[in-house]
């Protein structure tokens, strides 16, 4: 089992993740922890310093809005959360931009690699390619006109 790197910060991460990937708001706690667990598996092979930097960055994102809006990130309205993250994404400080990019990429990894999510997007790997597609079409036609 991979070391818990981001999972312990699930309460702080949840509003950030929901802002970056809106359907995460529909996940229950167990499903959201599964997303974070997958990220932790990926991070397990990385240097420990990266985990520390990520945890620090999540805390920065959580508390930085206090200086601008007197609220933590989780206390902001959804539109202001998005605007805050977009401002960081385009800010002049490359390290902050990289932080936002890295965190969103990990959240995408945890969410968009789920086979059910991929199927809902219209993607699923067909190892047999064209043959598999033809078979599916034939099956669909048969279901319409048995």
């Amino acid at each position: 089992m991979a070391a818990a790197i981001l999972t312990p910060l699930h309460d702080k991460l949840r509003p950030i993740a929901e802002t970056m990937v809106p359907p995460i708001a529909d996940l229950d706690d167990a499903a959201f922890l599964k997303v974070l667990a997958l990220i932790d598996v990926r991070l397990a092979g990385e240097p420990p310093a990266l985990g520390r930097q990520l945890r620090l960055f999540v805390k920065v994102l959580t508390f930085l809005p206090i200086f601008f809006a007197l609220r933590t990130f989780g206390g902001l309205a959804p539109k202001r959360r998005l605007a805050f993250l977009e401002a960081l994404q385009d800010c002049p400080i490359q390290k902050l931009r990289v932080g936002v990019w890295g965190l969103r990429t990990l959240i995408y990894l945890g969410y968009y690699t789920d086979p059910e999510v991929q199927a809902a997007l219209g993607y699923r790997p067909r190892l047999d390619g064209w043959e598999g597609l033809a078979r599916e079409k034939a099956q669909q036609a048969h279901e319409v006109h048995p």
């Binding site: 802002t19 970056m20 990937v21 809106p22 359907p23 998005l82 993250l85 977009e86 994404q89 969103r104 990429t105 995408y108 990894l109 968009y112 690699t113 999510v117 991929q118 997007l121 219209g122 993607y123 790997p125």
Partner: peptide, 25 residues
Amino acid sequence: YFPFVTAKNLTGFGPEHHRLLKAYE
């Protein structure tokens, strides 16, 4: 490319980003 790699390579996040991924097909 596949959904995660596509998501990673699109700039940004949020509703517009997810809407594009929903248009994957």
